[in-house]
Amino acid sequence: MNNSYFINIVRFILLVLVQVLVFNRLNFFGFINPMVYILYLYWYPIKENRAALIGLSFLLGLLVDLFSDTMALHAAATVTIAYFRPTMMRFVFGVNIEFQSFRLSNTTRAQQITFLALLIIVHHAVFFALEIFSFANIVLMLKKIVAIGAASLVLCLLFSSLFSVKKE
């Protein structure tokens, strides 16, 4: 139990640092900065306290905001996906999540990708809606959501397969 707390803290710090020091500087095609810190919510233990997750996500978003001068946009988007995470899990995995033995690693690849994609789409939609904040630029907003969302998804999938825990 203690071990999982420790891993969570290390993951939190590493994801923030990787995000602000590497991925915020990527600027692929001039505007694509993938957001890999969403993986924290993907990896977060399923059975843990929900309020704690919301609080932690706010902190995570705020830390990323602090580094990227975006005020509290990351915090708002991350808090939103933290709140809707259980709903998304029920949608993707069905009643399976009620079982004690449920693990993310036991689900199919398609389910994992769907769950991650849902997290990323909702996060990016909230983030860019707030960042651009005008209907006049709705095309720019959609372009950013699709392009950056795709980049985030690819990178998150790579990371999740790179650091996957094999406990079969």
Binding site: A51, I54, G55, F58, L62, A72, A76, V79, T80
Partner: peptide, 16 residues
Amino acid sequence: NFLLYLFLMMVSLGFT
């Protein structure tokens, strides 16, 4: 949980 979410969302929107 919903109230916590609402509160934190308000805080971040306030900052923004």
